[in-house]
Design a protein around this nucleic acid. Sequence first.
DNA 1: CCTCGGTGTGGAATCGTTTCCAATACGCTC
DNA 2: GAGCGTATTGGAAACGATTCCACACCGAGG
Lengths: 364, 364
Amino acid sequence: MGRCVLTEHGEDHVRERAMSRAATIKDVARRAGVGVATVSRVLSGSGPVSPATRDRVLAAARELEYRPSALGRGLKTRRTGTLGLVVPDVTDPFCAELAAGVLECARTFGENVLLDAAHDDPEREAEIVDRLVEQRVDGIIAVSAGEGTAWEAAMRAGVPVVFADRAPAGPPQAPTVLADDAAGVRAAVEYLVGLGHRRIGFLGTTAADTGVREETFRATLAERGLAVREELLVRARPQRDSAFAAAAGLLQSRPDMTAVLAATHLLGEAAVLVARELDLRIPADLSVVMVDDVPWAELCDPPLTAVARPGRRIGYQACEVLLRDPARRDRSRPVVLAAELVIRGSCSPPAGLSGGTARSARTR
Amino acid sequence: MGRCVLTEHGEDHVRERAMSRAATIKDVARRAGVGVATVSRVLSGSGPVSPATRDRVLAAARELEYRPSALGRGLKTRRTGTLGLVVPDVTDPFCAELAAGVLECARTFGENVLLDAAHDDPEREAEIVDRLVEQRVDGIIAVSAGEGTAWEAAMRAGVPVVFADRAPAGPPQAPTVLADDAAGVRAAVEYLVGLGHRRIGFLGTTAADTGVREETFRATLAERGLAVREELLVRARPQRDSAFAAAAGLLQSRPDMTAVLAATHLLGEAAVLVARELDLRIPADLSVVMVDDVPWAELCDPPLTAVARPGRRIGYQACEVLLRDPARRDRSRPVVLAAELVIRGSCSPPAGLSGGTARSARTR
DNA sequence: CCTCGGTGTGGAATCGTTTCCAATACGCTC
DNA sequence: GAGCGTATTGGAAACGATTCCACACCGAGG
């Protein structure tokens, strides 16, 4: 038939593609000599089909390289097989880990994931949600920054929402999956206090998400009979430069502080870098604990003690809550996943206790 | 009208949502007393509409909280406003950075991004591509692991593909955006040689993507008149444990090696950790350079000298190539973005030259 | 011989948009 | 006042799937 039998198949494809566009179910039906309904039945595995017809349809589909269109299907079935994931920032290791969890779980359900980053901007977040609704996603998983209004709109539009890692303050009633930040911070503070620290600093953010961390910090100190010294609590905006400024301010002006708890890995990074700049040795001059056990914690010298929050599992579970058993989704309180204090080398008893050298915080 | 004027609006919404499902263009048309065509014209801004009608339609749309369905629109226009992004692993800082670039650019074009991770598994990659084609994405950006066959299928199906960061070996002819790995590695090797190093190790991977790095490593050594010593070249699989094993093997068995180039940040991490374990001081006993300037490079002690590859810009550009001017996309050679050697504190002249202390590589 | 209950099968409606095309009305010019 | 271009507008046909419903066929039971 063709001049070159070996490449005939390939030529076929090229010609078909080049001329008409992608094959539709109608093309398959025609080629197999059956009706579209039958093709649909074969491909979706529903309804009775005789083995002979099935084979013909399957063959036709293969020959045409037929791929059902998610658009056509979604229009009819009202499901897109896609869900939305909104995070503050993909390059944040914690968010990335969470996203990996979502991806992993979504995959087991055969769902796709539409990702976007809101950069802690409520307005941008609202716009993203709008677009996700427009895409008719089957659900949204959100590490939310803004207030609830955007999410309320989504839920009104019939799109289920699950919050991950951060519980929004506002009214939107939606299932939530969180890390047990309180327990983590409590463990960290108690660890420091147990080592003998009395003047412990706190680096937090103005964003809502470190709120419980700060509260727990205060509460634990109080429980242990230690006064909370307001001048040791500093808050930064969630940007890198702001974190630095905050850390610099705290470390420079409080020479009697012997330990610091960074409520965020960005703040932990800032603390480490500023300490190095100020020639403060960790842990001899300053003990450091950080929330979020990002990969570099172990690479630091000394390796950083940190509160490990299970980002991947949070993402996985959030996705599971969203997709499994949507009926039971609405009632039920937040899922809380354990956080764990990973003790490494960045904390020691304070200088006075251990007999270490007096600290030298020269401001060059 | 309502018993409580203040909440009437809200009740309206609830009732409408609870009963019927989301408003369609037909609902808007009816409410505004116009035809669907007119609504479409108003909302998409095409065609002439009288100001009065426009206002009525806009009002109706607002009252109904109407959101056009991307499904219906996509079916008709053959564009989904969504593109696919396939990376090896979202939690990898470089991939995350690249993804952020894609997100950023896609946003300026009003496109959504469907993300998935192939985990360096060609089979999985093929499956992902299949799903993206089924979703009828407008294009795919790929940091590909597998051979070209999956990508060929996508392109046959009419989905444009752009490769980012890695050029696939196979036949699939598609635009590509790369970092100038060769220049980066060359700069790194020359830097080490310039410092006086003669016995330089290389940690690479079995994956194809470090191929040019190894070649350039060899070539640069040769140019500088240095023999390439095969026993100093080690390759690991792209998993963490394999990287460790490779680093351990190299550092332990080659006590005369004075510097090492890690072709990957995972390998750099392994090198640093193994060196610490072996009580090798960096840079006194061993100089270390790594490809990919991940955030922790600066946090290391000493901070790591690294080849910075512009992940974000690669992603941004890949997306731009995909979306802007699709005609000119096909011809034209790969876009190559500069990589830069960022010199920090992990390299110094070898011990023999600088008069440093003799190294003590005890294997405890 | 005639119903009856299945089994396969195809036609046609439907999902929510865009867009072509025809129809209407309006303001001019001649 | 007729003719005509132009500004608006609505109806209807796609787009590509699923699915309801009707129909044909066939062996069994009355």
